[in-house]
Design a protein around this nucleic acid. Structure first.
Lengths: 72, 72
DNA sequence: ACGTAATGTAAAGCGTCCTTTACTTTATGT
DNA sequence: ACATAAAGTAAAGGACGCTTTACATTACGT
């Protein structure tokens, strides 16, 4: 329940930060390429630890990577 | 793998914000009391959507609720 | 001291995050 | 046009977040 939406800027940030490939980004944050693909595609939300790793890899805050909308 | 630590200030923020009980906080963010207990006890990390809801309930950023350490 | 609210502990079950494997499609360079 | 790298799709399995139920303990008010 609670229809909420989570979008992210991973794909954009990946290119803003020295043209990282999905595989390279996956290696840096310690997950598989499939996980990066799924997150970029918005198939599911990452865990909080992974969100932290992604944000730090890009040198920004979690709020700058992920946008969460609460439709209440 | 990748021994990382996640701590949080949920319990402290709960008292700073008008003396919320675990049950009241659980209701506001849409989970059960058990989930709040487990998170306060550090038993597991919340999902990213739940982390967003908690942070917004307290009126702060995710980084102000959760502290993540990367031991690399 | 007693009753009630608040917090804590435990365990089974479900859904979702993430992995692993394998194959296909799209882009890039020469 | 061809070879290779990068990105996409799919599906089974494991790990973990979260629920549900039930009971135990601690704090608080009168």
């Amino acid at each position: 329940m609670s229809s909420d939406r989570l979008s992210n800027k991973v794909r954009r940030l990946r290119f803003d930060n020295g043209e990282l490939t999905q595989q390279q980004l996956a290696d840096r944050v310690g997950v598989t390429r499939q996980t990066i693909i799924a997150i970029e595609a918005g198939k599911y939300a990452p865990s909080l630890p992974l969100a932290f790793k992604l944000a730090r890899t890009f040198g920004v805050s979690i709020e700058e990577v992920f946008e969460y909308e609460n439709e209440r």
